[in-house]
Computed example of a mutant assay.
Amino acid sequence: MQYFKLQIKRILKSKFTWISLILILSICAYFLRINYIVNNVDSHDLSQAKSNLIIQQHNIKYFGKALKDSKLGTQEKKQMTGDLKEAKSTSKELQTLIGALKNNDWKTAYPIMIRQEKRNLASAKKDNLDNALLAMSKRDLRQLEILAKLQIPKENYESIKGGFFVLQMMETTIPPLVVLAVIFILVKIYSAGFFERMRLGNLLPQKKLTLTEFYTGTTIGFGYFLLIFFLIFLLPSIFFGTGNFNYPITAMNPQAKEYIFIPMFRLFLPTLFLELLSFAFIAAVVLLIIQLFKRRLVALLLSVFLLVGGMVLPQFVIGVRSFAQYLPMSYFFALQPVEGMFGISNAYTFADENQLVTYPQVNFRNGVIVLVIGTIVILLLNCLIAKSTQKGRKIK
């Protein structure tokens, strides 16, 4: 307990802790500012409705002039009359939709949006669009139907409300930044236990030193993450609200390659649990590297290379995803396995997202198994190395 308290005090006094915290929050604040700007212009739905209205008004003028042409045959005139009638009907519907969207009258807006989306889906099927585009059209229709049933206002992806914003940041931004900062912190506190490549703890009668260090590192890492997580959730929530926790968040059934919707509140606990296991694994790996190399700079570089590199590699390299389920680092982006969106919902994907390639093996259940087994194995190695050095044997 004394060791734990000492390290907590050391972390709280460290300038790096506060500088890294401010830096991460500043990066997230930058994205919040972008979202704020986006939310202060017309929403995607409103912009699309206005554009479609302009097109329909142009069609009305065109068909009106064309019908005055005396050279039109009976069949052409009948077709043109039908097109004019449809254009006027669509124009009136769009005007109603625009008014409803401006006034946040979702009870009026949703039925119109659902009808439009059904027409879009029918058109996509008629035009034989690829499966990915069809899946997205079905996704949009299903989301509108759920929102209409729940009578929840539709949110932009770039939302400024706390719940939506923290999930957006969890998809790609927070995990690598926090993991990098935690590695620096853990290397500093673990390396402080060495002097001239000798582990000072071995001079003390501490049978549970390794477990104490592991527990301390895990607690510090996950505590640091939780602090950032709740600040990023809390600060937007104070000014813009939390958002509705029943809101259907887009997720994926990777086996069926179908979009599904999960209420927001069901995403938080599994995501946080995977993050806890992730930081336990990180603490064990950093401690092992410190024990093996006993040099702060070497340990820092190796930890960053293995842990940060390992978590980012499957996001960049498509080939790695075939065995990503066996890499503990794949689950550091904890929200992606929970949503079933690994390889789909992150900003690093650049090669196969348009084909809707899914990776069902990278899921919450496998994440728990891989992280627990990986942590236990690394922790046992830590204990063996600590025990051998206490007996005076050199580890090469």
Results as ranks from 00 to 15, higher is better:
residue 208 K to H: 12
residue 342 F to Q: 06
residue 138 K to S: 07
residue 258 E to L: 13
residue 97 L to E: 09
residue 97 L to F: 12
residue 383 C to H: 03
residue 303 S to I: 14
residue 49 A to D: 09
residue 321 R to F: 10
residue 20 S to T: 12
residue 284 A to Q: 08
residue 383 C to F: 05
residue 186 L to P: 01
residue 261 F to K: 13
residue 285 V to I: 14
residue 99 G to C: 00
residue 102 K to A: 11
residue 311 M to R: 08
residue 113 M to Q: 08
residue 273 F to Q: 02
residue 347 A to H: 08
residue 126 K to T: 04
residue 390 Q to M: 06
residue 297 L to A: 15
residue 65 K to V: 00
residue 277 L to A: 01
residue 142 R to Y: 05
residue 244 N to E: 13
residue 158 E to F: 15
residue 277 L to I: 04
residue 107 K to H: 14
residue 314 P to C: 03
residue 320 V to L: 09
residue 241 G to H: 10
residue 378 I to V: 15
residue 328 P to N: 00
residue 380 L to V: 09
residue 276 L to R: 05
residue 313 L to A: 11
residue 187 V to W: 01
residue 336 Q to P: 03
residue 122 A to F: 04
residue 48 Q to P: 00
residue 7 Q to P: 03
residue 42 D to Q: 12
residue 190 Y to I: 03
residue 112 I to T: 04
residue 124 A to N: 07
residue 253 N to L: 12
residue 227 L to Q: 11
residue 185 I to E: 01
residue 95 Q to T: 12
residue 1 M to H: 02
residue 117 E to C: 00
residue 281 F to H: 10
residue 108 T to L: 08
residue 345 S to R: 12
residue 313 L to C: 02
residue 296 R to D: 11
residue 111 P to F: 11
residue 192 A to L: 13
residue 223 G to S: 14
residue 278 S to N: 06
residue 262 I to D: 03
residue 391 K to W: 05
residue 91 S to V: 00
residue 90 T to H: 02
residue 310 G to E: 04
residue 311 M to P: 07
residue 259 Y to C: 07
residue 334 A to P: 04
residue 148 A to S: 15
residue 105 D to Q: 10
residue 176 P to C: 13
residue 264 M to Y: 02
residue 278 S to D: 01
residue 382 N to K: 01
residue 125 K to L: 12
residue 231 L to C: 15
residue 355 Q to W: 05
residue 279 F to H: 11
residue 27 I to N: 10
residue 14 S to N: 11
residue 366 N to D: 05
residue 21 L to C: 12
residue 263 P to E: 09
residue 313 L to R: 00
residue 182 V to W: 07
residue 105 D to I: 09
residue 235 L to Q: 06
residue 152 I to Q: 09
residue 100 A to R: 08
residue 1 M to E: 03
residue 5 K to I: 13
residue 241 G to P: 13
residue 150 L to C: 06
residue 2 Q to F: 06
residue 106 W to M: 11
residue 341 M to Y: 11
residue 70 S to H: 03
residue 131 N to W: 10
residue 142 R to P: 00
residue 297 L to V: 15
residue 19 I to E: 00
residue 89 S to D: 01
residue 39 N to Y: 01
residue 361 Q to N: 15
residue 305 F to G: 07
residue 21 L to V: 07
residue 249 I to D: 14
residue 172 T to L: 06
